[in-house]
């Protein structure tokens, strides 16, 4: 270890935040760019499955709430892209990497939203899982990322409650509504568990990320936390978690759950999920079809600047 590296690690060990202007190892910088931009992409791609139902929201109150939620996610994306830029990486570059498949986003958003109950399930489970992840990341070692997490977490917990409330309403509604809610849970449960990433034994970067305190808990720890929080919530709704192996271990006080289908997980991560192509196409078309708008704004600004110069 060089002297700079030693000093860096010493700071981390004393829980002193690393700031943009501080020296940091290249690999640390790279890890952060990858993780934060992946997080930002997830916020943005995540707008699509929920945006899918905005025009079909069944009441005006729900329509407004969903619009506001999706707008929050756009704001999260914007905020996280700024955090990426503090590391010297251009936002559009990372976006192009996502469109080309080089950069990833959370694989949960490659699943389709098929009924209105999915708007509840996404809020409850997907935002719920995001919160577990992000609460842990509030203490991450990189200052701008940690502060972004504090801000974002407040909104995510609002989303989570909103989604859960939607499901409470549906579960107390007609038979068809309750069936829709159960079906949504059936489809989103396992992908939500996959949101925490591969099992610790298959997660080669975990040790280094933990040493750098980029990560504060392992994937499996966070997943367990999520299951422990969520199972009683499902029971309160009167819904059944689609896992025959799920049971409370009285000794540990934790729920034990069945084997995750990792083959499905790696397939979806590598592009073979139900909606991967649609999601990427939607985002890259938005950029492609919007490029003339950006060109116009730049050309106009330039003309205005020239006018000022002359005047």
């Amino acid at each position: 270890m060089t002297k700079a590296e030693e000093e860096f690690q010493a700071k981390i060990d004393r829980d002193i935040k690393i700031e943009p202007k501080d020296w940091m190892p290249d690999a640390y910088r790279k890890t952060l760019v990858r993780q934060i931009s992946q997080h930002a992409h997830s916020e943005i791609v995540g707008m699509l499955p929920e945006g899918n139902w905005i025009t079909r929201a069944p009441s005006l109150r729900r329509k407004v709430a969903l619009l506001a939620k999706v707008q929050d996610e756009a704001g999260h994306g914007l905020y996280l892209y700024s955090a990426v830029e503090t590391l010297g990486t251009d936002r559009e570059q990372t976006i192009d990497d996502m469109h080309s498949g080089k950069a990833k986003y959370s694989s949960i958003f490659n699943y389709p939203t098929l009924s209105w109950a999915d708007m509840g399930a996404v809020g409850w489970l997907v935002d719920g899982a995001a919160i577990v992840n992000q609460v842990a990341l509030q203490r991450t070692s990189y200052g701008p990322y940690s502060r972004a997490m504090v801000k974002i977490c407040k909104e995510e917990s609002f989303h989570q409650r909103q989604g859960y409330e939607l499901l409470i309403h549906m579960c107390n509604g007609t038979k068809e509504q309750k069936e829709m809610a159960q079906d949504a849970l059936n489809r989103f449960w396992w992908p939500s568990l996959m949101m925490f990433g591969p099992s610790d034994t298959d997660s080669p970067n975990t040790a280094q990320s933990m040493a750098w305190r980029v990560k504060r808990y392992t994937n499996d720890d966070l997943r367990q936390q999520f299951v422990d929080i969520t199972v009683p919530q499902a029971e309160f709704l009167g819904l059944t978690i689609p896992d025959p192996d799920l049971k409370m271990n009285e000794e540990t006080g934790h729920y034990e759950f069945g084997e995750i289908n990792w083959e499905e997980f790696f397939n979806v991560v590598n592009g073979n999920g139900p909606c991967n192509r649609e999601r990427i196409a939607a985002r890259s078309n938005a950029k492609k079809n919007g490029s003339w708008v950006i060109d116009a704004a730049n050309a106009y600004a330039e003309k205005q600047r020239m006018k000022k110069k002359v005047a």
Partner: peptide
């Protein structure tokens, strides 16, 4: 609201959702 997620740039997505809201 049909623009949601498809705006030409993120800032415009946010602006147009605002107007819609």
């Amino acid at each position: 609201s049909e623009w949601c997620g498809h705006g030409p740039i993120l800032e415009e997505d946010i602006a147009i959702i605002n107007v819609s809201l």
